[in-house]
């Protein structure tokens, strides 16, 4: 089991870095080449959502990305520090431009449409999106 953890200030320009790190670590772990685009997009969506939640909620702690390689799966966890109640409020009432209103939901739609194994949890300490992909050679779950 190996772990790479990344923490970044909730700024849009760092989301690309998170995508690049995630796809590099996924490739190294042995995620199928054809799934790397998915990994990149899903991590980008999860991080963009976390950045938006932090910015709207005025939270200045970093966004956390944990990449974990186990025997059979490669897992990614993206955590925000916005309590679930506040996240809902930020999503509903953000003073965003018209096309931004649906983007958070669309981001989740992209993740759910893309990743077979995904879990979205909210809590008082913030929300987490957990996703995982099979590793090449591991039996399909």
């Amino acid at each position: 089991m190996a772990i790479v953890e990344l923490r970044f200030s909730a700024l849009p320009e760092h989301v690309r870095t998170a995508r690049l790190v995630a796809s590099a670590v996924a490739r190294k772990a042995g995620v199928d080449e054809q799934l790397l685009d998915e990994v990149r997009l899903a991590v980008g969506e999860a991080c963009s959502r976390a950045v938006a939640l932090h910015q709207r909620g005025g939270v200045d702690t970093p966004v956390r990305v944990e990449l974990e390689e186990s025997e059979k799966r490669f897992s990614i966890e993206v955590g925000d520090a916005v309590p679930s109640q506040a996240a809902v409020a930020a999503g509903d009432g953000g003073a965003a431009a018209e096309e931004d209103e649906d983007t958070g939901e669309m981001g989740l739609a992209v993740i759910s449409g893309l990743v077979d194994d995904v879990e979205i949890v909210g809590g008082d300490g913030g929300g987490t999106i957990r996703m995982s992909w099979p590793l090449v050679g591991a039996p399909v779950r």
């Binding site: 995508r19 990149r40 997009l41 980008g44 969506e45 963009s48 431009a97 018209e98 096309e99 931004d100 649906d102 983007t103 669309m106 981001g107 739609a109 992209v110």
Partner: peptide, 16 residues
């Protein structure tokens, strides 16, 4: 090379 939901949102906004 890469498009995410933020980009989709902008395209939908343009369409509107």
């Amino acid at each position: 090379d890469f498009l995410d939901s933020t980009g989709l949102g902008v395209l939908v906004g343009g369409l509107k």
